[in-house]
Measured scan of single mutants.
Amino acid sequence: RVIAMPSVRKYAREKGVDIRLVQGTGKNGRVLKEDIDAWLA
């Protein structure tokens, strides 16, 4: 299970990103909004 705040999950869904593919850089591997942006870049 991916650790991410609900707002980040929603952001990823809106961008069409599968959050399971994104490498989290936050505490304990948490996926941050910046990680979604970096994955899209």
Rank of each mutant, 00 (worst) to 15 (best):
V17E: 00
K10Y: 09
E34T: 14
V8S: 04
D18N: 11
L21R: 12
R13A: 13
G26H: 03
K15G: 03
G16C: 08
G29D: 06
D18G: 03
K10W: 10
A4L: 04
K27I: 09
V2Q: 09
G26D: 03
R30Q: 12
N28L: 14
T25A: 04
K27H: 10
A12Y: 01
S7D: 15
R9H: 12
A41D: 14
I3T: 08
W39Q: 06
Y11E: 07
D35K: 00
N28V: 06
N28W: 14
R20Q: 14
I3N: 10
R13M: 15
Y11S: 05
R1E: 15
G29N: 11
M5N: 13
P6G: 09
W39F: 14
G16M: 09
D18T: 05
L21T: 06
G26K: 03
K10F: 07
Q23L: 15
M5R: 13
R1H: 15
Y11A: 07
A38K: 13
R30F: 08
M5Y: 14
R13D: 14
V22G: 01
V2L: 11
D37S: 04
G29L: 06
G29S: 07
V31F: 01
P6T: 13
E34Q: 15
T25F: 03
G29W: 04
D18A: 06
A12I: 01
D18W: 04
G24R: 03
V17N: 00
R9G: 03
L40S: 06
I3R: 10
D35M: 01
G24H: 03
K27W: 09
A4V: 08
L21S: 09
E34M: 11
R13H: 12
E14P: 00
L40W: 07
W39G: 02
V2D: 07
S7A: 09
I3G: 06
D37H: 04
V17Q: 01
D35S: 02
V8M: 04
Q23R: 13
L21W: 10
G24N: 03
A38P: 01
K10M: 09
A41T: 14
I3D: 11
L40V: 12
V2K: 08
V8R: 01
L32E: 12
I19Y: 04
L32P: 00
G29R: 07
V8F: 01
R20K: 14
M5V: 10
W39R: 05
E34G: 12
W39P: 01
R1K: 15
L40D: 04
L32S: 10
L32Y: 07
A41C: 11
K27Q: 10
R9T: 07
G16H: 10
A41M: 14
V22E: 00
V2N: 10
G29A: 07
I19P: 03
V8G: 02
L32I: 12
D35W: 00
R9L: 10
A41P: 06
P6I: 12
K27P: 13
Q23G: 09
D35E: 01
D35F: 00
V22A: 03
V17Y: 01
P6E: 10
A12R: 00
I36L: 04
V2Y: 03
N28M: 11
P6K: 14
G29H: 09
G26L: 02
E14Y: 09
K33M: 13
D35A: 01
I19E: 02
R30N: 08
S7M: 08
G24E: 02
R1A: 11
S7E: 14
I19W: 06
S7V: 08
I36Q: 00
A38Q: 14
E34W: 11
M5S: 12
P6S: 12
D18S: 06
L32Q: 10
W39D: 02
Y11R: 06
A12V: 01
K15M: 14
G26W: 01
L32N: 07
L40R: 06
V8T: 07
V22S: 01
I36A: 00
K33Q: 09
W39M: 08
N28Y: 12
W39T: 05
A12K: 00
